[in-house]
Simulated scan of single mutants.
Amino acid sequence: MNATPAETSGSALRAMGGLSFSKGHGTGNDFVLVADPDGTHSFDADQAAALCDRHQGIGADGLIRAVPSRFLPEGRELLVDTPAAEWFMDYRNADGSLSEMCGNGVRVFVHFLRTEGLIDLPDGGSLAIGTRGGVKTVVWTGNDYAVDMGPWEFIFPGEASAKAMDSLVAADGLEVPRPALSVSMGNPHTVVALAELAELAGTRLFTAPKVDPVPANGTNVEFVVPAEPLVHDGVGSVTMRVHERGVGETQSCGTGACAAAVAIRHWAGAEAPDVWRVHVPGGVVGVKFFAGPGGHEHVELSGPAVIVASGTLS
């Protein structure tokens, strides 16, 4: 007889008995965090899913293992060009699947390193972090964390540059599929603009939206309402909800906030600002565009990070 999901979850949790962990969030996007300075705690998909289960585990949108980069093949590759990226954010979604990067997660990750005494990061100090989406540089401002998320790009560049739309998205609560734009922030996103907040509230994200065509590795889907007026005192503003690949709807998504700002700014045209505020169910994050190395435009994500609890699995 095959094990039930509850039995699988219980078995996975028992195998991790005695594990020390913390729980943290960035604007409501929450994570279980485990410090692994010796590289001895690897997690499989079942274990990650059991920890993130909101009914029979701790509950989170994802699991973050803080491990020195030298203990992972992906980390060792990054160390060749960026020796300063000593710590690696080993991240799994709530369903146990590996993910390239999480913008809220990397802020919480660095805050966790600080609170655990694993790094010394003064006000204004920066830290290079290894992720499966490349090296990310995080600055501690004294109030929150700002992350250079690296360059953005269109997933389907030819279609986007020609039509400003490259796909259609169908979701429960929307009468007809809506045009969308697919943006990569190191992980895939598909952004849909809606007309008003009532339409955003009526979009039901219990099940994954259907995207056509869907990017090769799946996609996160952002539903965005531009503010009216869109720009105030030189700052653009949008409100967003997101369905995250491998998770479901979350209170916030850092890379999704960046992708939403990319898409709305692209649609708004040449006069659109470089600084944005993105309102998500869990709070507000800042997005800023700036010229990066090699002439590529980079995106900075800023916002808070909070550790709410620490404990040990029984």
Rank of each mutant, 00 (worst) to 15 (best):
A35E: 07
A35R: 08
A35S: 15
D36L: 13
D36K: 15
D36H: 06
D36Q: 11
G39S: 09
G39T: 13
T40I: 12
H41R: 14
H41L: 15
F43L: 12
F43Y: 10
D44M: 08
D44L: 08
D46M: 11
A48P: 10
A48R: 10
A48G: 14
A48V: 10
A50E: 07
A50N: 11
A50P: 05
L51A: 04
L51N: 06
D53K: 05
R54S: 06
R54L: 06
H55V: 05
Q56M: 14
Q56C: 11
G57C: 12
G57V: 15
I58P: 03
I58T: 08
D61E: 09
L63H: 04
L63K: 05
L63I: 04
L63G: 02
I64H: 01
V67A: 02
V67M: 00
P68S: 05
P68I: 01
S69L: 01
R70N: 00
R70I: 11
F71V: 06
F71T: 03
F71A: 07
L72F: 01
L72Y: 05
L72R: 14
L72K: 07
P73N: 04
P73S: 11
E74A: 15
E74K: 02
E74I: 05
G75V: 00
E77W: 05
E77N: 13
L78T: 01
L78N: 03
L79G: 05
L79K: 05
L79F: 10
V80A: 14
T82I: 08
T82Q: 13
T82D: 10
T82P: 00
P83A: 10
P83R: 08
P83I: 07
P83T: 10
A84V: 07
A84D: 12
A85P: 08
E86D: 12
W87D: 02
W87F: 11
F88P: 06
F88M: 13
M89K: 11
D90I: 08
D90A: 11
R92F: 13
R92L: 15
N93W: 09
N93P: 14
A94D: 03
D95G: 05
G96N: 08
S97L: 00
L98T: 11
S99T: 06
E100D: 00
M101C: 00
M101S: 05
M101Y: 01
C102Y: 03
G103P: 12
G103W: 06
N104G: 07
N104K: 12
N104P: 04
N104S: 09
G105S: 03
V106N: 01
R107A: 03
R107Q: 06
R107P: 02
R107N: 02
F109A: 01
V110C: 10
V110T: 14
V110R: 07
H111S: 03
H111A: 10
H111R: 13
F112D: 12
F112H: 15
R114Q: 14
R114H: 10
T115V: 08
E116I: 00
E116Y: 01
E116A: 14
G117W: 02
G117R: 07
L118R: 10
L118V: 09
D120C: 02
L121D: 09
L121R: 05
L121F: 08
P122R: 08
D123K: 13
D123C: 06
D123P: 10
G124I: 08
